[in-house]
Each structure stands twice: as C-alpha cells, then as structure tokens.
Simulated assay, not measured.
Amino acid sequence: MNKRQNKNRAQAAPANLQAGMTVTMTVARQTEIGYFLHEGEDEVFLHRSEAEGPLRIGEEADVFLYHDHENRLAATMQMPYVSWGEYGWLEVVDVSPRLGVFLDNGIKKHLLLFVDDLPKMRQEWPRTGDRLLVTLKRDKQGRLLAKPASEEEISRIAVPADSDMHNKWVEGTVYKVIQEGAFLFTDDEHVLFVHRDEMTEPLRLGQSVRCRVIYVRADGRLNGSMQARKEVRYAEDADKLLHYLIDRGGAMPYTDDTPADIIREKFAMSKSAFKRALGKLMKEQKVEQDEGWTRLIRK
C-alpha cells in the first residue's frame, strides 16, 4: 500500500458514525496526546485539549463528532450551540471571499457557511459580528457545513403579529435579501419586510436593524421602515438645515432651485425633502430666500 493510500485510510470515517452526531462513547485506550474512544467497532480520537478533564480506560464520555483540520473524524466534549436537526443564531467570526463566512458554533473548529449559500452581491454578505439563523448539513465528503434557515422553517417558528404593532419600533436581524428589499426576523419572532424605498442604508445578511412597523398584514407578517414618521423626518431635516445655516454665519447658496445632485451631496437628502424642510423653516419665519441664497431671519 503506498503513502497516498495510507493517508486515505487514516482519514476514512468510521462506518456508523458521522460528523454532527452527539454520541456516548467508551475510552478504549489513551496516548500522550489524547484518547481513542469506541462504540462497537467504530473508533474516534479525542484530543486531551477537547476533553473535560482526565479520562480513564472504560469510562464513558458524551462527545460531539466533527472533522478536524486534517479532515479526520474527531470527537470533542465541548457541545455545539447548534446540534444536528436544530436551528440557532450563530455569530460570524471570519469572512473568506473564496469560501464564504465562518461561524462560531461553540467548538474550536468554526462552521463554514459556503459561498453558494450566500448572496451573489458581496456587499450583501454578512460581516464579522453579524448573526445568522442556521442549521447543520453535510457535504459530499461528510463534513459539516452551515445551512441557512429555509423559508419553511422561518414560517414554522414565526409568531403572527397583532394589529397594535402599527407604528411601533422593533429590533430584527436580516435573514434574506432580495431585489425588492430585505426580510427580518424580529426579536419578538415576527417576520418583517423592508422595501428598499424604506431603507436608510443598503442592508446585508445578518445585520441587526431597527425598524418602524408601517403595516400589519392579515397573516400577521409586518412591513417596516427604517425611516421615522414623515412629520418627524420633516422636523429633523429642517433642524439640520437650520444648524448648517448657523454654522455658516446665517446664509447658504442653496435654495429651492439648487440641482438635486448638489442637494444630495451637501445634505444627504432628496430635493423634495430639502424643499419640504425649507418650506417648514419659511413658514415658521426662520429663513428667507433671495437671489439664489437662503438666509436666516434675524429677530
């Protein structure tokens, strides 16, 4: 048998055991660096660093099975946050443009969410510190991967919202991004959709977002907005212009006739929002426009 065949034999998984299983195994023998555990004819290695204290020959241990960095089936006494058949929120700890994102599942080896299960647009990928709702799956080699929660699973665990949720602010996490907007799963386990027109910034998978409920659907799902109510936004925009004028000594070369691209560049607001804010200030007799300039009215 050549070296390549020896390597393949060493990495072959036991016939009845698979990554992702939580099993009770017996210590068959020990070495300087760990223990060999067996269940029937199957045997798996448990490194001392993965054991919770010293073990004796014949002692039983509850272990979680995974593939180590040399692609061998191994055991750990550390229990994962998400086990086989379960769903849970896991934190992103690293991002690889080639492979995908790595998640902390409570054991030393991080769980990979493969690139094929992520949005095609890189700006919609999660970042370090974001959280994803996932379960476990195996690739063709039997190695563990993360699998995003399906729409069916979200529907199964979601709670219908009551009509009194209208205009309330909620916290949620993005679990799906589509061309029209993004779906969130709120802290109260409601499903909420944010249309792109209601966003204050582009959203990404796993991002935590604060939204205002603008509509409660008959099926208990929510539509939301990241923007404040119109009257609040008008007041905030007007206050922004007022402070800008004060900082400039009471005058600025921008009026209702200023092009929209300049308005957006200077004030990060649309031309219509700018005109509404100026109109509010003029109605309150705080500013006036004259020959291409807007000036504070000194009282």
Score class of each variant (00 low, 15 high):
G53F: 10
K230H: 07
W293K: 12
Y87V: 04
I262Q: 14
E124R: 15
R156V: 04
L113W: 02
L184A: 05
N223T: 07
V216A: 07
F45N: 00
M269I: 11
L245M: 04
I178A: 13
G249Q: 00
Q5E: 09
K286S: 07
E39S: 10
P160I: 02
E50G: 04
D197P: 01
E201P: 00
E171M: 11
V287G: 03
S49N: 11
N167E: 13
R212S: 09
V159L: 14
T255N: 09
D62R: 14
D219I: 11
G250Q: 09
E284A: 15
I57P: 00
A61E: 05
D257W: 09
Y234E: 09
R29I: 06
Q78P: 00
Q78N: 15
D68I: 09
Q30R: 14
E201V: 08
E231M: 08
H69Y: 14
R217P: 00
A235E: 08
E151R: 13
R98I: 00
T294W: 09
K147H: 07
P126E: 03
T128P: 03
S208C: 03
Q11W: 07
F267Y: 01
G40Y: 06
K283N: 10
K108M: 11
R122L: 15
I107K: 05
V177N: 03
Y66K: 01
S49M: 11
I262G: 05
N16H: 13
M25V: 05
G85E: 06
S163I: 12
I246N: 06
Q285K: 15
P259K: 13
L281P: 00
L203P: 03
E86M: 12
R210Q: 13
R131F: 02
D68A: 10
T258K: 08
P97V: 01
Q30C: 10
E198N: 13
P253M: 10
A268M: 15
L205G: 02
D257Y: 08
R295C: 05
S272C: 10
L192W: 04
L113N: 02
I154H: 06
S163T: 07
G220S: 07
E153G: 04
P253D: 07
G224V: 04
Q11C: 14
E41D: 13
K7H: 04
N167C: 09
M79Y: 02
S83M: 15
V115W: 01
V209K: 06
V27A: 12
V213F: 11
L205C: 05
V213D: 10
Y244N: 06
T22K: 04
V92Q: 02
L242E: 09
R138Q: 15
G100L: 03
R233Q: 12
M282S: 12
S155R: 13
I214N: 03
T26L: 12
M79N: 01
A260R: 12
V115D: 03
P126W: 01
M21K: 10
T258V: 08
D116P: 00
A235M: 10
H38C: 08
L281C: 08
K137I: 01
E171H: 06
D290E: 15
R264E: 12
G206S: 01
M252L: 15
V213A: 14
K271W: 15
N2P: 04
A260D: 12
M165H: 12
V159K: 14
L222A: 04
M79C: 00
Y215V: 05
A238Q: 10
Q227K: 13
A10F: 09
G224D: 06
R204L: 01
N2Y: 10
Y175D: 06
K266N: 08
L103A: 02
E41K: 15
D256S: 11
H47T: 00
I297E: 13
G142K: 03
T258H: 06
